[in-house]
């Protein structure tokens, strides 16, 4: 996505720069022609408007850059709490990656994560017993 949008923006920028240069040259040519005709014949100066191809090139390149910039924007996030929390629950970190594939800095994860690990409710006696069992088995295996 990022490469595509950058490529589109770059192509549009080149076209726009070319259109700008063409318009500048056109206006320079106009002023040159006006001065030369004024000195030669002093007739009415011809001032034509911008040629249609430069106009078209400008507008098309504007559209191309616009498309590239729009495609390069970051993905939006749902603003309703239930939709947003559901997205986190379903997609986790995958739903909050930016264009480079890294997780956003302000991604906070599950807003209710504090309720999901509560050290105060850990059954410490049971864990101690399990650890003692594991040590006993480990000792037995090593002693063999």
């Amino acid at each position: 996505m990022t490469l595509i949008s950058k490529a589109i923006t770059g192509i549009g920028g080149l076209l726009l720069a070319h259109a700008c240069y063409s318009a500048q040259e056109h206006s320079a040519l106009q002023s040159f022609r006006a001065t030369s005709t004024a000195t030669l014949t002093s007739s009415s100066a011809v001032s034509t408007s911008l040629p249609i191809d430069i106009v078209l090139e400008t507008i098309v390149s504007t559209f191309i850059i616009l498309l590239g910039l729009v495609l390069g924007t970051r993905p939006l996030r749902p603003i309703e709490w239930r939709v947003w929390a559901g997205k986190i629950e379903r997609e986790g970190e995958d739903g909050f990656k930016d264009r480079n594939g890294e997780v956003n800095k302000d991604y906070v994860g599950n807003p209710f994560g504090i309720f999901e690990s509560r050290p105060n409710f850990v059954d410490i006696r049971k864990q101690r017993k399990e650890f003692a069992e594991w040590v006993k088995n480990g000792e037995g295996q090593q002693g063999r």
Binding site: L69, V70, T73, P78, E80, D106
Partner: peptide, 26 residues
Amino acid sequence: SPIVQESLMHNARTLQNLQSLTASLF
């Protein structure tokens, strides 16, 4: 149905970045 402020700001900033960039382009 409460609203997440961070998402709101993130979206508004994304849109505003795009609009200020494209305004200069126009």
